[in-house]
Design a protein around this nucleic acid. Structure first.
Length: 308
RNA sequence: CGCGGGAUAGAGCAGUCUGGUAGCUCGCAAGGCUCAUAACCUUGAGGUCAGUGGUUCAAAUCCACUUCCCGCAA
């Protein structure tokens, strides 16, 4: 099965770029679709997506349509006559008439073991939920949100120290590997319907979810901190002063203080259900990320004070 | 010109408003105490106060510009 496919690749962030890079040397990527460059950073500089940059470097035509509701956009895609459309974290919904274009269909690389964690942020959600297993699903797309038939899956463990970014990197490698495997074996792979009754959702993260509630257990808070690292980071407040918690660990001990209380100079914080979380790395507004020891050298904070 | 914070010893900060001897907490070095220590005590080294120009008898401090770092928002 060594025939080269003509592939249209649709994706946006680094997670997708890994898959694109894996496809490039083996198949014929005839076009890349990605989100349009958007203003980023303090100076609002128009920035191209990682997939966009990668495509330019490899001299692949890039399209950044705002929507596929426009028939001209769809016809243009049709004109490319792709064998297969591969989608990875593209961030746009594809209507049925797009899904039908390619001979071998629209294949999606999704970062969860479907039907679990359907939706926009499966990687962060898996960590925040405290899951110990996640993985990659290669799926034949249909009009629903991550509801298509399952083609291939591979699980991976979520260690209790891994962060969102680290897990994403790990999953992107698996995704790249699995999509190649699928193409190689597509003739012998039978699609499996998803069991909708077991489906769970991984909706887009909301801003308020990043605020730490010290009434939760140390484990839950630790998972939130990991799941939101390196962006946007879990936040708490000391005297109305926002502090981002970069890194933490659960302390195997108990306490009898109100949640949020600072227990000692290690920055062990009282959490719900008498659990304890140790803050290892922190960042204040306008400051750099600091190990807790350096942070405490300059920041006035006392034992028995409370974080909100 | 999206809004805002910052640059002072190896690290983190105060001092800047109100110009006049360079400070704090740590780290580092030496010595002491100790069975011992990351604990405690004593002493010490370590600074072009981001850069350039200006005001002034005098600038970390006031004014102008430059560079770099960070948070928000997207």
């Amino acid at each position: 099965m060594n025939k080269k496919l003509n592939i249209v690749f649709m994706g946006t962030p680094e997670f997708a770029e890994t898959a694109l890079k894996a496809l490039l040397p083996i198949h014929n990527v005839i076009a890349v679709y990605t989100k349009e460059p958007k203003p980023v950073g303090r100076k609002m500089i128009l920035t191209k997506s990682p997939v966009h940059e990668c495509a330019i470097q490899n001299n692949i035509p890039v399209y950044t349509p705002k929507t596929f509701k426009d028939e001209a956009i769809v016809n243009q895609l049709k004109g490319l006559n792709p064998d297969m459309i591969i989608v990875a974290a593209y961030g746009k919904i594809l209507p049925q008439n797009v899904l039908d274009i390619a001979k071998f269909g629209c294949i999606n690389i999704h970062a969860s073991i479907l039907p679990k964690l359907r939706g926009a942020n499966p990687i962060q959600r898996s960590i925040i939920n405290g899951d110990t297993i996640t993985g990659i699903t290669i799926m034949k797309m249909d009009a629903g949100m991550d509801t298509g038939d399952i083609l291939l899956q591979e699980e991976t463990e979520i260690s209790n120290t891994i962060t969102y970014k680290e897990l994403e990197n790990k999953l992107s490698e698996i995704g790249a590997k699995l999509i190649l495997k699928y193409i190689d074996n597509m003739g012998s792979i039978k699609p499996i319907k998803q069991d909708d009754t077991r489906a769970t959702l991984a909706p887009k993260l909301q801003k308020e979810e990043a605020i730490i509630n010290w009434n939760n257990t140390a484990n839950q808070i630790h998972n939130l901190i990991r799941g939101l690292s390196p962006h946007p980071y879990a936040t708490c407040y000391h005297n109305n002063n926002p502090l981002k918690i970069i890194k933490s660990e659960v302390v195997n001990d108990t306490h009898n203080f109100e949640p949020g209380t600072i227990l000692n100079k290690n920055m062990d914080i009282a959490c719900g259900n008498n659990t304890i979380l140790r803050i290892l790395e922190i960042q204040k507004i306008g400051g750099k990320k600091l190990p807790i020891k350096d942070f405490l050298n300059g920041y006035k904070i006392e034992i028995n004070e409370k974080l909100q």
